[in-house]
Computed example of a mutant assay.
Amino acid sequence: MKYLKHLFGTVLFVAVAGTSYGCNLKATEPMSTTLIAKSIVDKPAKQYVKIALLLDTSNSMDGLINQAKAQLWDIVNEFTHAKCGNDRSSRPSLQIALYEYGNDNLSSNEGYIRQVIGFSDDLDEISEKLFSLTTNGGEEYCGEVIQTSLKQLDWGKNADDLKMIFIAGNEPFTQGKLNYKDAAYNAKEKDVVVNTIFCGNYEQGISTMWKNGATITGGDYMAIDHNRQVVHIATPYDDVIIRLNSQLNNTYISYGSLGRQKKAMQSEQDNNAVAMEAAVAVKRSVSKSSRMYKNSQWDLVDAIEDDEEILSELKEEELPQELQGKSENEIKTYVDAKKAEREKIQKEIQELNAKREAYIAKNQKEETGELENALLSAIKAQASKKNYTWDK
């Protein structure tokens, strides 16, 4: 489906790396010093954009899943530009959750629903989970999967957070014992906006209540051709960006119990992207050169940037072999060199990508389609209520 990227685009568009202040920066009356101090203390450390993707994985949805795999990264690249109000340094933190439903391989006792991954900011893991999805015919219970995501996920209580569900499928929205209206009203109570994507005819989606499911929460209804092929435009910059991505991987220093596993996952997701198409690998490489791609839990460069004290806390055996037996100063020097190398490569990728995007814009023979415009308009309209804006 050419347009699932728009589902993900919609889904991911409002997000990037963390901030210490909320996006909902409204004009207020002057406060006393005491009230100001209290508001600072009470303010959450971060503001979040929380997105739950609910994907139908029945037999008819192979196109939907394949396009999700193909389009994740160029959608992520769009979201590096989101910010809170007019403060360029204030960026919301993104968390994504993934559910599959309507698959016979899933438990009937659970309503043919499975949480694939809870809220996470680990882009490699999100990619890995997407590539793990397979399709098989089943019963598609839209109301139940919405309700399950509302109950299982930690949506938080911060009124400034942007909380959204995107559900995609092609069977009537009314299937299942749980009334979709009850689930929608529960979402509304939690300040969660439900957006529906019907894989089929627009009018059919309306008659099967997909539009109503979105309307109840103030969300948007869209219809897509989920089997339409994605058109990628090759550019003269693609091969260079892919080569730089290999160099970028060499700047990651794995540590701790997760290190080796996560570094292997990084390479595995590179390979998955290449297997889809070279253009997908390019888009993933661009994502890895942005602020969106952060791996403090297993990469020493990112970890030290977040907390320099981590070096004194790590045990010898938690370090990679090349750093074992080194002094703390020697390790820091090594990490600093890798950080500088990474930043240089990331800058090169970003500069090449700017030329790549200009080339694509010049050689694009057809419009991206009304769905993309509809999705981006919808997400921006919903995000604007939380005072989100974009750099470009």
Score class of each variant (00 low, 15 high):
Ile167Gly: 05
Asp191Trp: 02
Gln247Asn: 10
Cys142Asn: 11
Val194Gly: 01
Thr235Met: 03
Leu162Val: 12
Leu106Trp: 05
Tyr237Ser: 03
Asn212Tyr: 03
Gly102Trp: 01
Leu133Glu: 11
Lys157Trp: 00
Ala223Val: 05
Lys332Gly: 02
Leu153Tyr: 04
Arg291Gly: 14
Thr208Cys: 05
Pro172Ser: 11
Lys2Phe: 06
Leu123His: 01
Ile360Cys: 05
Lys83Arg: 15
Ile304Trp: 02
Gln175Met: 09
Asn387Tyr: 08
Asn363Cys: 13
Glu277Phe: 08
Glu78Asp: 12
Gly213Met: 04
Gln297Pro: 14
Asp124Val: 07
Val230Tyr: 08
Asn170Lys: 09
Ile40Asn: 10
Asn212Val: 05
Gln67Asp: 08
Asn179Ile: 15
Lys338Gln: 10
Gln229Ala: 06
Leu300Cys: 07
Asn295Thr: 13
Asn186Lys: 12
Lys262Gln: 12
Ser132Trp: 03
Glu316Lys: 11
Ser287Phe: 04
Asn105Lys: 14
Tyr48Gly: 03
Lys380Gln: 09
Trp155Met: 00
Asn105Phe: 09
Asp124Thr: 00
Met164Phe: 11
Leu4Gly: 13
Lys355Asn: 01
Thr19Val: 11
Ile36Leu: 12
Val335Met: 02
Glu313Cys: 13
Val301Trp: 02
Ala264Pro: 05
Glu343Pro: 04
Ala27Gly: 07
Lys338Phe: 01
Val14Phe: 10
Lys50Thr: 08
Asn329Glu: 08
Gln324Lys: 10
Thr196Cys: 13
Gly369Thr: 02
Gln266Arg: 14
Ser120Gly: 10
Ser267Thr: 13
Asn105Gly: 15
Glu308Ser: 14
Leu123Pro: 00
Ser290His: 00
Glu140Tyr: 02
Met164Asp: 08
Asp104Phe: 09
Ile331Arg: 14
Val230Gln: 10
Glu78Tyr: 13
Gly118Met: 01
His232Arg: 04
Gln247Ile: 05
Tyr252His: 13
Glu309Cys: 03
Glu305Asn: 09
Gln324Tyr: 04
Asn353Cys: 00
Tyr99Leu: 12
Lys38Ile: 13
Gly325Glu: 04
Ala354His: 00
Glu100Gln: 14
Ala374Thr: 06
Ser254Thr: 07
Glu268Val: 15
